[in-house]
C-alpha cells in the first residue's frame, strides 16, 4: 500500500490543515492570549454557525449552481423561530420543527422552480432572496423579537463543563460529519457530484437531474434553517437582519476549500477548514488590534491565494500526467 506523502498532498484539506496549524502556532507565539480560554470560545462560536452556512452553499456548488437565498432563508427561519415562541408561546422543540420545515420548504421551492423553469439557480434564488426577505420584513416590520425562552438563551451561552467549548458548536460538528458521509458515502451524494461534473454524462447513465437538483436545494434550505436558529441562540434575540451578511462568506469557505464553482468538486473537510481559516484571521486581526476593515482585505487576499494554489496544483498534475504518458 502506498498511503504516502503524495496521496496526502493530493487532498484539498491537507494544505489547509497545515495553514491552520502554522498560522495558529505563529499567532500564539506572538500573542499567547490567542490560546486563552475566552478567545478559543469566541473562535468556536463564530465557527459554529459559519460552518453550517458554508455547507449550505457548498452542496449547491457541488451541483454547479449557486444559492443566493441562503441568508434570506436563514433570516426568515430565525424570525419565525423566535416569533412563534414570543407571540404564540409555542414550546422550543415545536418551534425548532417549524423553523426546519420553513427552511426545507424554501429550499424545495428554489430547487423545484429551477428544475421546472430550466432557468439558472442564480436567477431563481436571486428572486426568492427578495421574496423570503420581503416576507421576513412584512412579518417583523423590521422589529426584532426579544422574548426568547431561557433554555434557548442558555444553549447559546453555555460551555461544556469547564472547557471553553460552546454548546453551539456541537450541532455544526455533527452536521459536518453527516455531510461528509453524505457527499462521500451515499449514492445520492455521489450522484450530485457526478451531476456537477457533467450534466450530460450523469443523465446518460440515468441519474435524474430533477431529483439531484431538488434534493440539493432542500438540504441547502434545511442547513440554512439550522444556521438561522443557531444565530438566534447566539444573539439571544430574533432580529430581521439575521442572514444579511451571509452570502459572501458562504462562498468564501468552500472556495478556499478548493471548490470549483462550475460544480463537481467540493470537499467537506476542506470547507470546514476554510471556515476555520477565515475565523482565525478575523480573530488574529482583533488580537493584533488591526482595524476591522482590514478583515475584508485579508479575506479577499486569502481567496485569491486559495484559487491560485488550486490552479497551480491542477497544472502540476496535468504536466506530470503528460510526462507519464510520454514514456
Amino acid at each position: 500500500m502506498k498511503i504516502t506523502q503524495s496521496s496526502l498532498l493530493k487532498k484539498d484539506w491537507f494544505g489547509l490543515l497545515i495553514v491552520v496549524l502554522l498560522s495558529g502556532t505563529f499567532i500564539a507565539m506572538l500573542k499567547p492570549a490567542f490560546l486563552s480560554a475566552f478567545n478559543l470560545y469566541v473562535l468556536m462560536v463564530s465557527v459554529s454557525y459559519m460552518l453550517i452556512i458554508a455547507l449550505s452553499q457548498m452542496i449547491i456548488i457541488a451541483i454547479g449552481q449557486m444559492n443566493l437565498s441562503v441568508g434570506a432563508i436563514g433570516g426568515l427561519v430565525a424570525i419565525s423561530f423566535s416569533g412563534v415562541m414570543e407571540v404564540y408561546q409555542i414550546s422550543v422543540p415545536v418551534a425548532i420543527c417549524i423553523g426546519l420545515v420553513i427552511g426545507t420548504v424554501c429550499g424545495f421551492l428554489n430547487g423545484y422552480i429551477t428544475v421546472k423553469s430550466g432557468i439558472s439557480a442564480f436567477i431563481i434564488t436571486l428572486a426568492t432572496l427578495y421574496i423570503f426577505k420581503g416576507i421576513n420584513l412584512g412579518i417583523t416590520e423590521a422589529e426584532p423579537f426579544y422574548e426568547i425562552p431561557e433554555t434557548v438563551k442558555n444553549f447559546g451561552n453555555a460551555k461544556i463543563g469547564t472547557s471553553p467549548i460552546p454548546y453551539l458548536i456541537i450541532i455544526p460538528v455533527i452536521i459536518t460529519f453527516l455531510m461528509w458521509v453524505f457527499m462521500n458515502r451515499t449514492e445520492t451524494g455521489r450522484h450530485m457530484l457526478a451531476y456537477g461534473n457533467s450534466v450530460q454524462s450523469a443523465e446518460l447513465i440515468g441519474i435524474s437531474s430533477s431529483k439531484v437538483v431538488v434534493t440539493a436545494h432542500v438540504i441547502s434550505g434545511f442547513l440554512a434553517a439550522i444556521a438561522g436558529m443557531l444565530v438566534v441562540c447566539r444573539l439571544q434575540l430574533g432580529t430581521p437582519n439575521i442572514g444579511d451578511s451571509w452570502l459572501l462568506p458562504s462562498f468564501a469557505a468552500p472556495v478556499i476549500g478548493g471548490a470549483i464553482l462550475a460544480g463537481g468538486k467540493v470537499d467537506v473537510i476542506a470547507t470546514a477548514l476554510g471556515v476555520l481559516i477565515v475565523a482565525i484571521i478575523s480573530q488574529a486581526l482583533v488580537i493584533f488590534k488591526i482595524d476591522p476593515f482590514f478583515v475584508q482585505i485579508f479575506l479577499g487576499v486569502m481567496i485569491l491565494l486559495a484559487v491560485f494554489v488550486n490552479r497551480y496544483r491542477e497544472y502540476k498534475q496535468e504536466s506530470s500526467k503528460k510526462i507519464f504518458n510520454n514514456d
Binding site: 455521489r190 450522484h191 457530484l193 461534473n197 457533467s198 441519474i207 463537481g264
Partner: peptide, 20 residues
C-alpha cells in the same frame, strides 16, 4: 468521453448501481 473525470474508474463503472 462520457466518464465523470474526477471519480475513480470503479465508481464510474458502477455509478448507476452503486453497491451498498
Amino acid at each position: 468521453r462520457n466518464l465523470i473525470r474526477r471519480f475513480s474508474v470503479g465508481e464510474n463503472l458502477m455509478l448507476n448501481n452503486l453497491p451498498r
